[in-house]
Design a protein around this nucleic acid. Structure first.
Lengths: 186, 186
DNA sequence: GTCTATAAGCAGATAGAC
DNA sequence: GTCTATCTGCTTATAGAC
């Protein structure tokens, strides 16, 4: 048996970068082979169901990172402002200060019958709910808190689109800085 | 000479819908043929440079509609609040209350060497500048007005992403309703 | 302006050796 | 676990008749 060129984790990191930059349809197996140095058959050994499975696995990994690393402070005790600041730091790192697109955006185009869209929906709803929980904890009524959470997520998604299209990452920084106001103001 | 099945305008409308839903890579010529009822050779007669030219033309048309119809009130005299309300009505119609994605998002993925990204950048900057002009007119300093314009556009783009991913168009409606506050508040 | 017919190349995918 | 070799179907693209 040949030696693995990459750990699963390393490989998923490379796939994540590709899907973020090129979307699902734009990320061809040939491109993946170029980047990873693996041939198609090797990729199919790791992901027997092909590109669909790669995208699903990449989404699942991003979910895990979001829940366990980035949004985790929201489920812990402590000062809301401080915990939100930790979340912002995590988001800034995850999106490389706005220079990386979000998989929830890039993987939800051109999806007729795959599970990616359903998966992305669940991920986004978890994100919104996490933000909403903090907002509610800060004293806002439940329905308003949910709106605040949704609008905060939308602010980040929009800033990422603007950053990609206009090449201006300052909007992303401002979106992060606006989160306390968006989620905690009465 | 055979009779044209569609006017240029009708054809571009169909192409626009496709590029909005599936992005550039996801919109294959076969899909276009299915939707339009034309065969590939007919499409190449209209767009000799192929899909790239279709995307460019679709972007240019969207630009024109935005400038001439949607953002036009911003360049005319009158009460800022009323003019902005007209713009919101135009945006609501253009994005079908949040059920259509934005070409600036869907056509800027997976673009290595085409002109679409450059074109999209110009379009987005014009949009931001138009919003900023209103904000400045309302009395805000130039740099702040530009930020407000950028954040307002980001709010709309983000709401469109949330609408697509979460299937919740209420966020888009709220984004439109928030525009006066975003652009005009002192 | 539309069509039929055709072509080269790349897409995703698989079998089997090492 | 990686590789070579192969395959089918779909991709973009073109030539030429009507």
């Amino acid at each position: 048996m040949a030696v693995a060129k990459y750990s699963e984790e390393e490989l998923l990191g490379q796939l994540t970068q590709l899907f973020r930059e090129y979307g699902f349809e734009g990320t061809s197996l040939s491109k993946i082979c170029d980047v990873t140095g693996l041939v198609k058959a090797s990729l199919y050994h790791r992901f027997p169901k092909g590109k669909d499975e790669m995208a699903d696995t990449v989404l699942a990994r991003a979910d895990r990172i979001f829940a366990e690393q980035i949004l985790r402070p929201l489920r812990e005790p402590g000062d809301p402002k401080r915990r939100l600041a930790e979340v912002c730091a995590g988001l800034d790192k995850f999106y490389a200060s706005g220079s990386c697109s979000c998989l929830l955006d890039t993987l939800t185009l051109s999806v007729d019958a795959r599970g990616a869209r359903k998966h992305a929906r669940k991920s986004l709803q978890y994100w919104v709910a996490s933000f909403a929980a903090l907002s509610k904890e800060a004293g806002l009524p439940a329905e308003l808190a949910r709106q605040r959470g949704e609008d905060a997520v939308a602010a980040i998604q929009g800033a990422l689109v603007v950053a990609r299209v206009a090449g201006d990452r300052k909007a992303f920084r401002r979106a992060l800085e606006s989160l306390p106001e968006r989620l905690l103001r009465k």
